[in-house]
């Protein structure tokens, strides 16, 4: 059995930024191979795994790209300025460790910006830089070139018995859920496509072309959603709790999910005695919207993993939510439509 914690650890080791998903794609392909009939990688880099069946064609998608950074300027003393790849708040990154391919570094706030009395949201990517310990521009350029990407450097650790703290729960935990669901779907009356998509964090670009190619009858995304059970600003946005079960998306700012499909998921969950939570977000977006709007329209929804501290290197999730999400997804995929 695929175990979620170990799976997440393995995936984090291979985490790749949007647009450069080769490494994570190969890692996932190795893990997915025993569970599907055939697999291919499309022009954008989406990994498409197929479990053949005669019934409805169902596409499931979890994005395998991770948010990160791209070096854009190295100053005369070897300090590196970056562009964000995906949604980051610059102020949250101060003292955050990252790694380029050859060297680690840490984000710092420029002294002048610190003394300027700026609020968090006034801090931009011109105010922060990565210190890799270089003392000269030449020293830095031996290890980092313009265009090189960096990701969070952080470990996946157990918190208590059921929870993990990890970079890239978004959406490597979604990929873990999808892999686990594939393992549970070794035979199905339906024609199943499990897609590990690229460039979701830059605007769901991979899911768009993958869905166009697959032409699914039904589509289900697997992603993460913000939990509202912590004393942070999110608190009053929703009451989604870690350990309360996977969520079924009703809406976010990019999509209104298929009502019929949500009813089906809920009835499967009830039959299996799996707790679920309804997800209504004021912001955010996932591959769901691109699949829903494919060709002449596809009924689509999303199963999400409640997550704290989204887009930080210390995302916290409950592994039971991931396992239960996989059970729910697999049971749904195996039901007759």
């Amino acid at each position: 059995m695929l175990e979620i914690f170990n799976l997440q650890k393995e995936l984090v080791k291979n985490a790749s930024t949007s647009g450069y998903e080769g490494k994570i794609g190969r890692a996932i392909a190795d893990l997915a191979k025993p569970f599907c009939d055939e697999m291919r990688i499309d022009a954008l880099g989406n990994l498409i795994c197929h479990i053949k069946g005669k019934g409805k064609r169902i596409m499931c998608a979890a994005h395998m790209d991770a948010i990160g950074f791209m070096a854009r300027y190295i100053d005369e003393n070897g300090f590196i300025y970056v562009n964000p790849l995906g949604g980051h708040y610059a102020y949250e990154l101060i003292n955050t460790r990252v790694c380029f391919e050859k060297v680690s570094g840490i984000f710092r706030l420029c002294k002048a910006s610190e003394n300027a009395g700026k609020t968090g949201k006034e801090i931009t990517f011109n105010d922060i830089y990565i210190d890799i310990g270089a003392r000269t521009k030449e020293g830095a350029e031996k290890l980092v070139s313009i265009g090189d990407t960096a990701i969070f450097e952080g470990e996946t650790v157990m918190l208590g018995k059921n929870r993990i703290m990890t970079p890239y729960a978004d959406d490597l935990s979604g990929c873990a859920m999808l892999l686990r669901a594939m393992q549970l779907c070794n035979s199905s009356p339906n024609d199943l496509y499990f897609v590990f998509t690229v460039q979701e964090e830059l605007g769901c670009r991979g899911a768009k072309t993958a869905a166009f190619g697959i032409e699914p009858d039904i589509a289900i995304a697997v992603d993460v959603c913000p939990a509202g059970d912590c004393p942070s600003e999110n608190d009053r946005h929703n009451d989604i709790a870690l350990g309360g079960g996977p969520t079924i998306k009703i809406m976010d700012s990019s999509v209104f999910s298929s009502v019929g499909l949500n009813k089906l998921l809920k009835s499967v969950a009830t039959a299996m005695n799996i707790k679920t939570q309804w997800e209504i977000l004021t912001g955010g977006g996932t591959d769901t919207s691109e699949m829903l709007l494919t060709r002449d329209g596809v009924p689509a929804t999303c199963i999400s993993i409640p997550t704290r501290n989204l887009h930080m290197p210390v995302e916290i999730i409950d592994i039971r939510d991931v396992e239960n999400g996989a059970q729910l997804l697999a049971a749904t995929l195996r039901s007759k439509f």
Binding site: E114, K118, G120, V157, S232, E233
Partner: peptide, 20 residues
């Protein structure tokens, strides 16, 4: 040996507060 992470509560409002 118990691990965790530091986060801001709803009063910290790091987005709209002068960082210092």
């Amino acid at each position: 040996g118990i691990c965790g992470c530091i986060q801001p509560d709803e009063k910290a409002k790091p987005g709209s507060t002068v960082l210092t």
